[in-house]
Structures are given as C-alpha cells and as structure tokens.
Design a protein around this nucleic acid. Structure first.
Lengths: 155, 155
DNA sequence: AAAGATTGAGTTGTCAATCTTC
DNA sequence: GAAGATTGACAACTCAATCTTT
C-alpha cells in the first residue's frame, strides 16, 4: 500500500501534519487563556500591518491567508465589529475595499505578539537544531511558493 | 516588535504555516475533484487501519487527530452513514466504542491513497532535498511529540 | 463520582448567487 | 461581461450539559 512515497518523505509529511495540529492547538489555547486575539485574527492583523501602506485589499488578504473571499469577508466583519480594523473604499478602484488597522488593532497586535512568540519559541524553535530550522525555513519556503504557484494557475 | 524570536526561527515558523495551508488546500481540492474521500475522512480511515487489531477507541481517535471528543463523534457519524466504518461496543469496557473499517472503508482508503500520495510527492517530497526531508522528519517529529506531551499534561 | 461517548446550541468557514463598479 | 466584495444557505467543529457504565 505504501511504496508510492519514499519512507523518509512520508515520515516528513506525517510529522509535518502532526506538528502543525499539535502546536497550533496549544498556542491557540494559550492566547485565549490570556484574553488575547485568536490566531486567525492575529493573521489578519499581521498581514495588514506588514503590507505596504499598512493597508490590504480583501482579495489579497484572502490569498495571503488561504481563505475564500467570503471567508475573508466574514472574518473582517468580526474584526471590524471588535474595532480592530476598518474598511475604507479604495481610491483608485471603488469596487475594492482596503482593510486598515485601527489604533486598537495595532495595540492588540503588539499585546498578543509576546505570547505568540513565546509559543513559537517553546514549541517550535527551541525544539529544532539550527540546521533543522534552516532546512525547514528553506525547504518549506519552497513548498509554500510552489503550492501557491499551482493554486493561482489552477484557478 | 520582532526580536523575541530569532530571525531564522521565525522564517521557519512562517513558512511552516504557509506550506501547510497551501499544500493541504490543493490536496483537498484534488481529492474532491476525483470523487474521493476528503482528507479528514482519510485521517480517520488511516488511523483506524494503522491501529493494532485495526480498531480504535473514540477517545484515541480524537487524541490522534487533535479533535475534541464531540468532533470525533460527529466525524465518525458521517463515516458511518457513508458505510465506511462501523462502531462496535468494546468487549472489556462497555462505555467505550471501537471504530472499525468496513469493506467499503478499506476500499475507499486504498482508492484514495494513490492520489493522496501523488499530492504528497509533487507538493512536498519532490520539492525538498534529501537532507531537508530528513531534517523535517526529525525536527518536526520532535516538535509534535513535545507538543503532545504538553497537551496531555495541561489537560 | 469519574470516564467514555453523545447531543443541543452556537461559531467559523464554504459554495453559489447577487450587487456594484470597471 | 468580468472582477471585487457581500449575502443566504449549509457543513464542520467546539463548548457545556447529559446519558451510560465503571
């Protein structure tokens, strides 16, 4: 039944899935315990914050977070209701909406980061050797770029 | 605002998340396109199939897939409705239910594997060097074990 | 009373259809 | 008519409460 995937590759894939599920789940729990924004909200805030001009089109946000457009809409609805982001009509193309951080959004981002960073360190970085971290960064970086390239072409 | 996590470690973490979201999403799409079981169902089938005696308690299934118990119940409900698994009362402890594969479940598993394997190869394994695959398998294996150990202790 | 599992209510996300602007 | 975004209907998952067996 196996044999279609080399053993090391399959082990890498399985551990990749297990590591993701377990680590995300723990970080999520810890953020909630501390009364901070959930990880999905954090993803929105950081994506907007890292964008040129600190504003991001809905379309780009969806692509960035690997969500559907409607998923992005719902998510931003909640963040907007919580006053962490605002939508503003795009100047050049009035179909589009830009998401921008409010003051509260920047604050929530700064406040969550230390806890998130602690999770990343304790559960991920500190468990890896330097070589492994480099290999993960390079290899999975290529995996991500490659998969995204295929997504856009197949859509 | 960064600085709490070393740069390489943070790059590794971010690429880890991006790779996961992008690769899973593509594999899921391909499985659906071919009329095969979704990945979450596959996870159940393979977990049961790999268990000693080819049967697995609900509790263990939930732990294995990083789900809540109710999540496991709902999921197995659907697989049972689709005649891919059956529940049987555990002989030694009649509170518990064991999940076992039906003939249709084994067939669905065998049928989905080549497509799943193709996705793993094309999107993941073939994109990694041999060294990277080994580093991912080892490093993320440790990440997964470490995180699971913490989950059980904190619950 | 505790553990395994299930159910009811609520949340989060998806797909298809729709509205607006290009 | 096509693209950006939103809405309605529905599917997947979680939490808290419940039922059964230990």
């Amino acid at each position: 039944m196996p044999g279609l995937v080399p053993a090391t590759g399959l082990a890498a894939w399985r551990n990749f899935l297990k590591a993701h599920a377990a680590a995300i789940s723990l970080i999520e729990t810890e953020l909630e315990r501390q009364g901070l924004v959930p990880l999905t909200w954090y993803d929105v805030l950081i994506a907007v914050s890292d964008s040129p001009g600190r504003r991001l089109r809905m379309r780009e946000l969806a692509r960035e977070l690997v969500l559907t457009r409607s998923g992005a809409t719902r998510l931003v609805d909640k963040l907007e209701a919580a006053r962490l982001v605002k939508r503003e009509r795009a100047g050049d193309d009035r179909r589009g909406a830009n998401v921008v951080l409010t003051r509260g959004g920047s604050w929530a981002l700064r406040r969550a980061w230390p806890i998130y960073a602690k999770g990343i360190n304790e559960l991920f970085v500190s468990v890896l050797t330097a070589d492994e971290a480099a290999a993960v960064a390079d290899g999975l970086g290529r995996v991500a770029r490659n998969a995204r390239a295929r997504s856009s072409s197949s859509v």
